[in-house]
Amino acid sequence: MYDIYFANFRKRVPLTYEEEALIKSYLSVKKVRKRQFLLQEYDVCRSVIFVEHGLLRSFSVDANGSEHIAQFAAEGWYISDLFSFLTEEPATFNIEALENSELVTISKLAHEELLEKCPKYEIFSRILLTDAYVALQQRMNANISKSLDERYATFVANYPDITQRIPQHMIASYMGTTPETLSRIRRRMASEK
């Protein structure tokens, strides 16, 4: 239920049994079904979600009703609307389960109490935020400076296990392109191999 959560934690910061028990007491576990929402736009995002099993996505919806996918999160990944979580302003993103999933969630209050009570948790949170920032910088830079072919290659490299689990139109949405263009890129890359 928390196996991957703590394995992921220990990879970055080692924990004693007592520290693990303390952190566990602040976590919540939740099972969700495919197509269930964890967060809806305009609602305040009250938790950070870790995926123990399954697959989630976050996305915004534009004025024309088109979806724009910001992030996918499979086993071992975190997902949230950090802007809303930190500021308590309405969320920009929706978070939806793409598969039946098992999650570990931490609420804002629990997160803040743990930051106070558990220095290891604070270190871990800092690493997590730094990683998220770096990932964001890379994604932003790729969007403004790299070709679609390069970006698709990066996506497949970053998400090797889940490329097969995500419908093509969602990958296209994540890349900011159309399914038709993505399909041309895939054909081209396959023929170059």
Partner: peptide, 13 residues
């Protein structure tokens, strides 16, 4: 008896 069964999944709920 129920509380014992659901303890782990009732955390923070």
């Amino acid at each position: 008896e129920i509380a014992e069964k659901i303890k782990e999944v009732a955390n923070q709920k």
